[in-house]
Write a protein that binds this DNA or RNA. Structure first.
Lengths: 363, 363
DNA sequence: TTGTACGCGTTATCAT
DNA sequence: ATGATAACGCGTACAA
C-alpha cells in the first residue's frame, strides 16, 4: 500500500478491467502516478541510479511491483541507442565446436545482462546472402560474435559497416578482435606424439579446400604437422594429405581411401575428432586393428572421443566462447581500445588407446 | 538520380561530413526529403504496401538505396508492438537433440523473416530463476519456442503471462501447442525389435528421475517398452530398469552396473543414443561382444550412431524444429485458433549391427 | 533530490 | 495516392 493512496493506484492500474478485459502492460507513467512522482524519478529509481532518496525509491519500487511493471526494452533501446543484444554469426548450430562456443558465450553474456540473437548463416551462398545482405543486423545488436564463418569479402564489409564491437572465434582476421587456439602448435603437438611413438608414415586428413581462405584452421594445423615432421626427419607424402569436410562421414571416406592402398600409412592425424572417429570406423570396416595396424589421433576432445578411446589434442571450446563474450563486454562497457586484442588459449595432448607404436615390420 | 534534384539529395544526405566525421545512419526523414515525399509515403513504399504509385515508389526506393537507408527495427517495434523476434528456451545448447531442434526452427523462422533470441536456461535452479524471473522476456519476443525444458510451475506461469504464441517441442503440456514424437510407440518399437530377435531379458536405461514430472519422455518410452513386453509375454525385472542422465558417461555407468552382475540381461534398450553408446563402451570395457553377448538399441539416430553401428529408432529432430517454427508463424500471422495443436511426427526403426539374437545357451 | 519537456524513428489514423 | 500528425514508452538535459 504505497502512500499514494488507493485512488491513485486504482487510476494507475494497468490491467484495465473494461468489458474487453484486454491485457495491457503498465508503463512508466502508471508507476509514476501510483507512486506520486514523475516519470523521470521512476526511471532513475528502477535503474538504481543515484540522486533518488531511499524513501522515494522504495515507494517507486513498491508501485512498480504492485503494477508488475517492466521497462519496455524497445522504448529504452530507441532512446538509448543500445539494445543489450549481441548478434552471433555461426555457420552451424548442430556441430560440436559451434554449439559449445555458443554455450560459453551465452553463459558469460547472460551474466552481464546481454541476450544473444542468432544468425545461422549456413554454408549455402543463397542463404548466406539473404542473412547478411538485407541489413537484418542493423540496429538490432550492440555487438557481434562471429564464429569460424568463412566470410566472403562483401560479407566482411557488411559486418564492419555496422560499426559495433566485433569478436571472432577461430577466425583470425586483421582488424577484428579474436579468440583462438594456436592451430600450428596444436597440429605440431599431435604429429609429435605420433612421431615420438615411432611412426614414419603419417597421413593428414584436413578440412575442405573449397571454402574461403579465411578458414585457415586446417591449413595451419597442417603447417604444424609439417614442422613436427621436419623436426623428426620425416617427409610427408603429398598423397597422404587428404581433404575432407570435418564430419564423421568425411572421415570414413578419407580413411577408406588411405587403407585401401597397397601401402597405407601407419598413422592418421585428423584435423577434428569427428573426422578421426570416421577414420576409426573405416579401420574397422577394413579389418584393421587400432592401434596395432593403424594409430589415429584427432583434435578437439569431443565428448564422444572418450567412448571411442581416441587420442586427441584437447581445445577449450567453452572457454573460447566465454573469453569472446568477455572481450565483447569489455568493448561495450569500457573505453575504446586502439589495439586489437588476440587471445590464444592453450591446447593439450590427451593420450588414449587409439595411438601406439607401429608394427615393427612396418617401421 | 531521382527527380528530387541534387540539392535535396545533398541536404538529406545522412552521413554528416562534419569535422568529427561521425557515422550517422539515415532516417526515414532523410529519405522523405531526398525523394520529395512525406515520411508516410516512404514508410508505405519501403514496406511494399498498396496505395503508392509506381513512379513514387521507384523514386523512394532509389533515394533509400542512395542513402543506404534501413528501417530501424526498434522504432518500428515500438509503434507496431511487434519485434519479429522469437524467443527460444532450451536447457542445453550443446546436446544433439536441442542443437538440432534449434537448427530446424531457426531455418524455418528465418525464411519467414523472424530472428531467434536465445534463452539457455540450463538446469541449475539459480541460473534458471535469473533467466525467467527478471522479466527478461517481456516485450522482447513475439512468440516463444520451449524445447524440453523441465519447467517449474512458477516458470510456466511466467511464460504464460507473456501472452504470446507458445509452442513446445518434446514437452506435452495442457494448453500449449506442441510438436512431439509418440514416445510410447517409439519405446514399443525398440523393445519389439529386441523381443522379435528372441530376447527375454531386456534392461531399460532411462532418463534422470530427479527432474520435474513434465519431462515425461523417458517415462513414456518405458511405458512403450512395458507394452511390448506384455505383448511378448515377458516381464521386466525391476532391477533391470535403470535411471541415467542422457549422456555417454551415464550410459557407461549404467552399462557397467548391468554387466557386472552375475546374471546380466541379454539386451539393453537406452532412451537415447548417447546413453546407448555409453552402454556399448561399457560392454567393451567388460569384454563382452556386441551383439553376441549383448544387444544394444538406442533412440534418436544421432549422427555418431552410424559409426558406432548402433541400432536405433530414428526421430526427425530437425523436422520437429521446423514444424514448431511453422506453428509459431501460423499463430503470429493467422487468426487465433481456439483449439491447441499437437503435431506428432513419425519415428522408424533403423537396424544396424548392435542388435542380434541372444546366445542360445542364454535363451 | 525531483520535475518538465523534448526527442528517439517509425507506424497508423485521418484528412485531403 | 499522398500528407500531417498523433502516438509508441522511455532517457535525459535542464530547470527548479
Amino acid at each position: 500500500m504505497p502512500p499514494g493512496g488507493p485512488t491513485d493506484l486504482k487510476r494507475g492500474a494497468a490491467p484495465r478491467s473494461g468489458p474487453g478485459a484486454g491485457r495491457t502492460t503498465s508503463t512508466i507513467h502508471d508507476v509514476a502516478r501510483a507512486a506520486g512522482v514523475s516519470t523521470a524519478t521512476v526511471s532513475r529509481a528502477v535503474r538504481g541510479l543515484d540522486r533518488v532518496s531511499p524513501q522515494t525509491r522504495a515507494r517507486v519500487l513498491a508501485a512498480a511491483e504492485a503494477l508488475s511493471y517492466t521497462v519496455s526494452p524497445v522504448a529504452a533501446s530507441l532512446v538509448s541507442g543500445r539494445t543489450r543484444v549481441v548478434g552471433v554469426v555461426v555457420p552451424f548450430l548442430n556441430r560440436w565446436f559451434f554449439a559449445n562456443v555458443l554455450d560459453g558465450a551465452e553463459e558469460l553474456l547472460r551474466e552481464h545482462g546481454y541476450h544473444l540473437l542468432l544468425f545461422n548463416v549456413g554454408t549455402h551462398q543463397t542463404t548466406r546472402s539473404l542473412v547478411l545482405d538485407h541489413g537484418l543486423l542493423r540496429g538490432r545488436v550492440d555487438a557481434l560474435l562471429v564464429v569460424s564463418a568463412d566470410l566472403r569479402p562483401e560479407e566482411v564489409e557488411v559486418l564492419s559497416s555496422l560499426h559495433v564491437p566485433l569478436v571472432t572465434v577461430g577466425l583470425d582476421m586483421a582488424g577484428w578482435d579474436c579468440v583462438r587456439i594456436d592451430d600450428v602448435r596444436t597440429g605440431e603437438l599431435a604429429a609429435a606424439h605420433l612421431i615420438g611413438l615411432g611412426h614414419r608414415r603419417i597421413a593428414y586428413v584436413g578440412g575442405d579446400p573449397s571454402e574461403d581462405v579465411h578458414l585457415a584452421t586446417a591449413v595451419d594445423r597442417l603447417l604444424g604437422v609439417r614442422r613436427a615432421a621436419r623436426a623428426g626427419g620425416l617427409r610427408l607424402a603429398r598423397a597422404d594429405l587428404l581433404q575432407s569436410d570435418w564430419t564423421v562421414a568425411g572421415g570414413i571416406a578419407a580413411g577408406q581411401t588411405l587403407l585401401q592402398r597397397p601401402d597405407p600409412p601407419t598413422a592418421v592425424l585428423a584435423a577434428s575428432d569427428e573426422m578421426a572417429i570416421g577414420v576409426l570406423h573405416a579401420a574397422r570396416l577394413c579389418g584393421r586393428q587400432v592401434p596395432g595396424d593403424l594409430s589415429v589421433i584427432g583434435i578437439d576432445d569431443h565428448e564422444m572421443s572418450f567412448s571411442h578411446d581416441l587420442t586427441t589434442v584437447a581445445q577449450p571450446v567453452h572457454d573460447q566462447g566465454r573469453a569472446a563474450g568477455q572481450l565483447l563486454v569489455d568493448a561495450m562497457t569500457g573505453p575504446p581500445l586502439s589495439e586489437r586484442r588476440v587471445e590464444t588459449l592453450p591446447t593439450r595432448l590427451v593420450v588414449r588407446g587409439s595411438t601406439g607404436p607401429p608394427r615393427p615390420d612396418w617401421g
